[in-house]
Design a protein around this nucleic acid. Structure first.
Lengths: 118, 118
DNA sequence: TGTCAATATTGACGCATGTCGAAATCACAG
DNA sequence: CTGTGATTTCGACATGCGTCAATATTGACA
Protein backbone atom coordinates (compact mmCIF):
# COMPACT_ATOMS: atom_id res chain seq x y z
CA UNK A 1 0.00 0.00 0.00
CA UNK A 2 1.65 3.19 -1.08
CA UNK A 3 0.60 6.02 1.15
CA UNK A 4 0.68 8.72 -1.44
CA UNK A 5 -2.13 10.59 0.17
CA UNK A 6 -2.11 14.31 0.17
CA UNK A 7 -1.97 15.63 3.71
CA UNK A 8 -5.16 17.61 4.31
CA UNK A 9 -5.29 21.03 5.79
CA UNK A 10 -4.75 20.09 9.42
CA UNK A 11 -1.43 21.82 9.47
CA UNK A 12 -2.56 24.77 7.46
CA UNK A 13 -4.83 26.69 9.74
CA UNK A 14 -2.73 26.88 12.80
CA UNK A 15 0.24 29.08 12.22
CA UNK A 16 1.21 32.60 12.92
CA UNK A 17 4.48 34.45 12.65
CA UNK A 18 7.58 32.77 13.98
CA UNK A 19 8.42 36.02 15.73
CA UNK A 20 5.14 36.46 17.57
CA UNK A 21 5.75 33.71 20.07
CA UNK A 22 7.74 30.49 20.28
CA UNK A 23 6.13 27.98 18.01
CA UNK A 24 5.15 24.83 19.89
CA UNK A 25 6.51 21.39 19.14
CA UNK A 26 3.40 20.08 17.40
CA UNK A 27 3.12 23.06 15.07
CA UNK A 28 6.79 22.81 14.25
CA UNK A 29 6.43 19.15 13.36
CA UNK A 30 3.49 19.94 11.11
CA UNK A 31 5.00 22.88 9.28
CA UNK A 32 8.63 21.80 8.98
CA UNK A 33 7.86 19.14 6.35
CA UNK A 34 6.39 21.83 4.09
CA UNK A 35 9.56 23.90 4.34
CA UNK A 36 11.63 20.79 3.86
CA UNK A 37 9.69 19.96 0.72
CA UNK A 38 10.45 23.42 -0.64
CA UNK A 39 14.07 23.17 0.43
CA UNK A 40 15.23 21.57 -2.78
CA UNK A 41 16.02 23.69 -5.84
CA UNK A 42 14.13 21.41 -8.20
CA UNK A 43 11.02 21.40 -6.06
CA UNK A 44 11.19 25.14 -5.47
CA UNK A 45 11.30 25.66 -9.21
CA UNK A 46 8.50 23.16 -9.75
CA UNK A 47 6.35 25.05 -7.27
CA UNK A 48 7.12 28.33 -8.99
CA UNK A 49 6.51 26.90 -12.45
CA UNK A 50 3.14 25.54 -11.38
CA UNK A 51 2.14 28.74 -9.63
CA UNK A 52 3.07 30.98 -12.52
CA UNK A 53 1.72 28.68 -15.21
CA UNK A 54 -1.47 29.52 -16.98
CA UNK A 55 -4.43 28.65 -14.80
CA UNK A 56 -2.24 27.94 -11.82
CA UNK A 57 -1.79 24.37 -12.91
CA UNK A 58 0.51 22.39 -15.16
CA UNK A 59 0.87 18.84 -16.36
CA UNK A 60 4.11 16.95 -16.03
CA UNK A 61 4.80 17.39 -19.72
CA UNK A 62 4.70 21.16 -19.22
CA UNK A 63 7.26 20.97 -16.43
CA UNK A 64 9.72 18.42 -17.77
CA UNK A 65 11.39 20.61 -20.41
CA UNK A 66 12.58 23.06 -17.76
CA UNK A 67 14.83 20.48 -16.12
CA UNK A 68 17.81 18.33 -16.88
CA UNK A 69 16.40 15.66 -14.62
CA UNK A 70 14.82 12.40 -15.65
CA UNK A 71 11.06 12.05 -15.83
CA UNK A 72 10.91 9.67 -12.85
CA UNK A 73 12.87 12.16 -10.79
CA UNK A 74 10.44 14.96 -11.60
CA UNK A 75 7.58 12.63 -10.81
CA UNK A 76 9.21 11.86 -7.50
CA UNK A 77 9.59 15.54 -6.61
CA UNK A 78 5.98 16.20 -7.51
CA UNK A 79 4.95 13.37 -5.25
CA UNK A 80 6.89 14.91 -2.40
CA UNK A 81 5.12 18.23 -2.93
CA UNK A 82 1.81 16.43 -3.15
CA UNK A 83 2.34 14.32 -0.05
CA UNK A 84 2.83 17.39 2.14
CA UNK A 85 -0.20 19.08 0.62
CA UNK A 86 1.52 21.86 -1.26
CA UNK A 87 0.10 20.79 -4.61
CA UNK A 88 -3.04 19.02 -5.72
CA UNK A 89 -3.20 16.39 -8.42
CA UNK A 90 -5.90 15.79 -10.99
CA UNK A 91 -5.93 13.33 -13.84
CA UNK A 92 -7.52 14.53 -17.05
CA UNK A 93 -7.26 11.93 -19.75
CA UNK A 94 -3.70 10.91 -20.36
CA UNK A 95 -2.32 13.90 -18.51
CA UNK A 96 -1.96 14.61 -14.83
CA UNK A 97 -2.30 18.20 -13.76
CA UNK A 98 -0.64 19.57 -10.67
CA UNK A 99 -1.96 22.71 -9.05
CA UNK A 100 -0.77 24.80 -6.14
CA UNK A 101 -2.83 24.75 -2.98
CA UNK A 102 -3.06 28.37 -1.87
CA UNK A 103 -3.94 27.51 1.71
CA UNK A 104 -0.72 25.57 2.16
CA UNK A 105 1.34 28.31 0.58
CA UNK A 106 -0.34 30.92 2.76
CA UNK A 107 0.31 28.83 5.85
CA UNK A 108 4.00 28.75 5.12
CA UNK A 109 4.07 32.42 4.21
CA UNK A 110 2.36 33.41 7.43
CA UNK A 111 5.37 32.15 9.35
CA UNK A 112 7.32 35.10 8.03
CA UNK A 113 4.75 37.80 8.64
CA UNK A 114 6.04 40.66 10.74
CA UNK A 115 9.37 38.93 10.90
CA UNK A 116 10.74 42.29 9.90
CA UNK A 117 10.31 43.72 13.34
CA UNK A 118 13.50 42.45 14.91
CA UNK B 1 39.74 24.78 7.90
CA UNK B 2 36.11 24.60 8.86
CA UNK B 3 34.05 26.78 6.58
CA UNK B 4 31.60 27.93 9.18
CA UNK B 5 31.22 31.28 7.54
CA UNK B 6 27.87 32.93 7.48
CA UNK B 7 26.66 33.34 3.94
CA UNK B 8 26.32 37.07 3.28
CA UNK B 9 23.33 38.71 1.76
CA UNK B 10 23.95 37.76 -1.85
CA UNK B 11 20.91 35.55 -1.90
CA UNK B 12 18.75 37.88 0.05
CA UNK B 13 18.10 40.76 -2.29
CA UNK B 14 16.98 38.93 -5.34
CA UNK B 15 13.68 37.26 -4.75
CA UNK B 16 10.09 37.95 -5.50
CA UNK B 17 6.99 35.84 -5.22
CA UNK B 18 7.13 32.30 -6.51
CA UNK B 19 3.87 32.97 -8.28
CA UNK B 20 4.93 36.08 -10.14
CA UNK B 21 7.15 34.28 -12.61
CA UNK B 22 9.13 31.06 -12.76
CA UNK B 23 12.09 31.42 -10.47
CA UNK B 24 15.34 30.87 -12.31
CA UNK B 25 17.82 28.14 -11.52
CA UNK B 26 20.35 30.36 -9.79
CA UNK B 27 17.81 31.97 -7.50
CA UNK B 28 16.39 28.58 -6.65
CA UNK B 29 19.82 27.29 -5.72
CA UNK B 30 20.41 30.30 -3.49
CA UNK B 31 17.08 30.28 -1.68
CA UNK B 32 16.44 26.55 -1.34
CA UNK B 33 19.14 26.08 1.31
CA UNK B 34 17.37 28.63 3.53
CA UNK B 35 14.11 26.72 3.28
CA UNK B 36 15.97 23.48 3.82
CA UNK B 37 17.55 24.88 6.96
CA UNK B 38 14.10 25.75 8.29
CA UNK B 39 12.72 22.39 7.23
CA UNK B 40 13.61 20.69 10.47
CA UNK B 41 11.34 20.95 13.51
CA UNK B 42 14.19 21.65 15.90
CA UNK B 43 15.61 24.42 13.71
CA UNK B 44 12.19 25.92 13.07
CA UNK B 45 11.65 26.10 16.81
CA UNK B 46 15.13 27.51 17.36
CA UNK B 47 14.41 30.25 14.86
CA UNK B 48 11.11 31.03 16.53
CA UNK B 49 12.64 30.99 20.00
CA UNK B 50 15.38 33.38 18.93
CA UNK B 51 12.96 35.69 17.14
CA UNK B 52 10.52 35.89 20.00
CA UNK B 53 13.16 36.09 22.69
CA UNK B 54 13.83 39.34 24.45
CA UNK B 55 15.95 41.57 22.25
CA UNK B 56 15.63 39.24 19.29
CA UNK B 57 18.62 37.28 20.43
CA UNK B 58 19.36 34.38 22.72
CA UNK B 59 22.37 32.49 23.97
CA UNK B 60 22.61 28.74 23.71
CA UNK B 61 21.88 28.36 27.40
CA UNK B 62 18.55 30.13 26.86
CA UNK B 63 17.59 27.74 24.11
CA UNK B 64 18.72 24.41 25.49
CA UNK B 65 15.99 23.91 28.11
CA UNK B 66 13.31 23.87 25.41
CA UNK B 67 14.66 20.71 23.82
CA UNK B 68 15.25 17.08 24.63
CA UNK B 69 18.30 17.12 22.41
CA UNK B 70 21.90 17.11 23.51
CA UNK B 71 23.75 20.38 23.69
CA UNK B 72 26.10 19.50 20.79
CA UNK B 73 23.06 18.75 18.65
CA UNK B 74 21.57 22.16 19.36
CA UNK B 75 24.91 23.72 18.59
CA UNK B 76 24.94 21.85 15.31
CA UNK B 77 21.49 23.11 14.35
CA UNK B 78 22.49 26.66 15.22
CA UNK B 79 25.50 26.29 12.99
CA UNK B 80 23.27 25.18 10.12
CA UNK B 81 21.10 28.26 10.59
CA UNK B 82 24.18 30.43 10.81
CA UNK B 83 25.85 28.96 7.73
CA UNK B 84 22.90 29.87 5.52
CA UNK B 85 22.74 33.35 6.97
CA UNK B 86 19.47 33.08 8.84
CA UNK B 87 21.03 33.92 12.19
CA UNK B 88 24.01 35.95 13.30
CA UNK B 89 26.40 34.93 16.03
CA UNK B 90 28.12 37.13 18.58
CA UNK B 91 30.31 36.11 21.45
CA UNK B 92 29.94 38.12 24.64
CA UNK B 93 32.12 36.76 27.36
CA UNK B 94 31.47 33.15 28.05
CA UNK B 95 28.18 33.15 26.18
CA UNK B 96 27.41 33.10 22.47
CA UNK B 97 24.35 35.00 21.36
CA UNK B 98 22.43 34.09 18.25
CA UNK B 99 20.20 36.66 16.61
CA UNK B 100 17.82 36.48 13.67
CA UNK B 101 18.79 38.25 10.50
CA UNK B 102 15.67 40.08 9.32
CA UNK B 103 16.85 40.43 5.75
CA UNK B 104 17.17 36.69 5.35
CA UNK B 105 13.78 36.09 6.91
CA UNK B 106 12.22 38.72 4.68
CA UNK B 107 13.83 37.18 1.63
CA UNK B 108 12.24 33.84 2.37
CA UNK B 109 8.92 35.42 3.22
CA UNK B 110 8.83 37.35 -0.01
CA UNK B 111 8.63 34.08 -1.89
CA UNK B 112 5.10 33.66 -0.60
CA UNK B 113 3.84 37.16 -1.26
CA UNK B 114 0.71 37.26 -3.37
CA UNK B 115 0.79 33.49 -3.46
CA UNK B 116 -2.84 33.76 -2.50
CA UNK B 117 -3.89 34.73 -5.98
CA UNK B 118 -4.20 31.29 -7.51
C1' DT C 1 -7.98 -6.30 -28.30
C1' DG C 2 -3.46 -4.27 -28.96
C1' DT C 3 -0.46 -0.34 -29.34
C1' DC C 4 1.20 4.02 -28.02
C1' DA C 5 2.07 8.10 -25.18
C1' DA C 6 2.05 10.03 -20.43
C1' DT C 7 2.94 9.20 -15.83
C1' DA C 8 4.07 6.40 -11.65
C1' DT C 9 6.55 2.83 -9.14
C1' DT C 10 10.51 -0.08 -8.02
C1' DG C 11 15.16 -1.06 -6.81
C1' DA C 12 19.56 0.37 -6.39
C1' DC C 13 23.41 3.63 -5.78
C1' DG C 14 26.09 7.19 -3.38
C1' DC C 15 25.80 11.13 -0.52
C1' DA C 16 23.87 14.07 3.00
C1' DT C 17 21.77 14.56 7.55
C1' DG C 18 20.39 14.15 12.62
C1' DT C 19 22.02 12.42 16.61
C1' DC C 20 25.12 11.26 20.30
C1' DG C 21 29.39 10.85 23.44
C1' DA C 22 33.95 12.28 23.91
C1' DA C 23 37.27 15.55 23.39
C1' DA C 24 38.83 20.27 22.31
C1' DT C 25 38.28 25.62 22.79
C1' DC C 26 37.35 29.62 24.83
C1' DA C 27 36.81 33.03 28.44
C1' DC C 28 36.63 34.26 33.00
C1' DA C 29 37.61 33.69 38.24
C1' DG C 30 40.63 32.63 41.66
C1' DC D 1 48.49 29.32 35.75
C1' DT D 2 45.11 26.21 36.99
C1' DG D 3 40.32 25.19 37.25
C1' DT D 4 35.45 25.65 35.84
C1' DG D 5 31.48 26.42 33.02
C1' DA D 6 29.80 27.50 28.20
C1' DT D 7 30.19 26.25 23.60
C1' DT D 8 32.12 24.07 19.52
C1' DT D 9 34.37 20.36 17.01
C1' DC D 10 35.30 15.47 16.06
C1' DG D 11 34.20 10.72 14.97
C1' DA D 12 30.89 7.46 14.45
C1' DC D 13 26.44 5.50 13.53
C1' DA D 14 21.88 4.82 11.38
C1' DT D 15 18.65 6.87 8.54
C1' DG D 16 17.02 9.69 4.83
C1' DC D 17 17.37 11.79 0.24
C1' DG D 18 18.19 12.79 -4.84
C1' DT D 19 19.00 10.48 -8.78
C1' DC D 20 18.69 7.12 -12.46
C1' DA D 21 17.42 2.93 -15.46
C1' DA D 22 14.09 -0.41 -15.81
C1' DT D 23 9.55 -1.68 -15.33
C1' DA D 24 4.65 -1.06 -14.46
C1' DT D 25 0.30 1.40 -14.88
C1' DT D 26 -3.06 4.22 -16.90
C1' DG D 27 -5.98 6.01 -20.49
C1' DA D 28 -6.93 7.09 -25.42
C1' DC D 29 -7.57 5.38 -29.77
C1' DA D 30 -7.34 2.39 -33.81
Amino acid sequence: MSKSQCAPDEALECCTSLAAEPIDVEQAEKIAPLLKALGDPARLRLMSLILSHEGGEACVCDLLPSFDLSQPTISHHLKVLHDVGLVGRERRGTWVYYSARPAAMAAVGSLFDTAVLA
